[in-house]
């Protein structure tokens, strides 16, 4: 029988702590496959955030450090500056990157750090129990916006990728999703490109934002969650390449 799919070596053979229907597992796999396909396993250093992906080092088999909430781009900067020959990526959620770590990602981009950022946006704080994030959609119910988020009270969902794209220090920013196989393949391509640019020594930061489901705190079934990304989330966070200076 022909083998059509197998676990890539940089993903460990284990169960994850992620909820059923969570998108992190898919994104982890895409990152690990990319690392293996590009042959950079031996020199890759990953940074785990605070948030649901805090235990990413338990699933991805590369050197990793777990850092204070939001500070991944600063730690990544420290590593990359002393080890310029290594490939350094941060893996961050929307609370981590868009809220508490807004300054760090903004300035790592502004400094044109040669880093790769995987930004998993699920519009909610998962690890702490489903609170409102800066990326939470209007009318979305969370434990800290029980009547649904309103502009009057909490302002607008924050589009970090668009903000970062304005800065000359970003060289490649693409927003993808994992709501169907075609989108997963697009996401993989984007992640590959974001790593390849770092390998090539391109001067600037690459970021792939992945709209990812959180069925648990969206109070939806996994299938409904995927649909909600396609129908609702992409209205506020349109998919596609936001910036590519290499074209």
């Amino acid at each position: 029988m022909q083998k059509v799919f197998e676990r890539t070596p940089s993903i460990k053979e284990c169960h994850t702590h992620y909820c059923p229907g969570c998108g992190h597992g898919i994104v982890h796999r895409l990152v690990a496959e990319t690392i293996d396909e590009l042959g950079i396993h031996d020199r890759t250093i990953g940074i785990a955030p605070v948030g649901c992906a805090v235990l990413a080092y338990n699933y991805m088999d590369v050197d990793m450090v777990e850092v204070p909430h939001g500070r991944a781009p600063a730690v990544a900067t420290g590593i990359k500056r002393v080890l310029p020959g290594n490939i350094v990526f941060s893996y961050q959620g929307d609370g981590d990157l868009a809220s508490i770590g807004a300054a760090e990602i903004l300035h790592a981009t502004h400094r044109a750090e040669n880093l790769t950022v995987i930004f998993v946006n699920n519009a909610v704080y998962g690890m702490t129990g489903g609170q409102m994030a800066p990326t939470t959609l209007n009318d979305q119910v969370t434990s800290t916006s029980p009547q649904g988020r309103t502009v009057k009270h909490d302002g607008y969902p924050l589009q970090v990728s668009e903000i970062l794209a304005v800065l000359p220090g970003s060289i490649y920013i693409e927003r993808c999703s994992v709501y169907n196989p075609a989108q997963v393949r697009k996401t993989k391509k984007a992640i590959q490109k974001a790593f390849q640019l770092q390998i090539d020594g391109a001067e600037g930061l690459s970021l792939v934002e992945v709209l990812s489901p959180c069925p648990t705190y969206w109070r939806k079934s996994p299938v409904q969650a995927m649909k909600w990304i396609e129908q609702e989330m992409t209205k506020v966070f349109p998919l596609g390449c936001i910036k590519d200076t290499t074209l």
């Binding site: 600063a74 500056r81 760090e104």
Partner: peptide, 26 residues
Amino acid sequence: RVFLQSESELAAINMVFGAAAAGKLA
């Protein structure tokens, strides 16, 4: 060697964290 002005003290100490994690004196 490396000198970098950070955007804040929060970032500075975390850059130190990164460099130390990489095995360097920071």
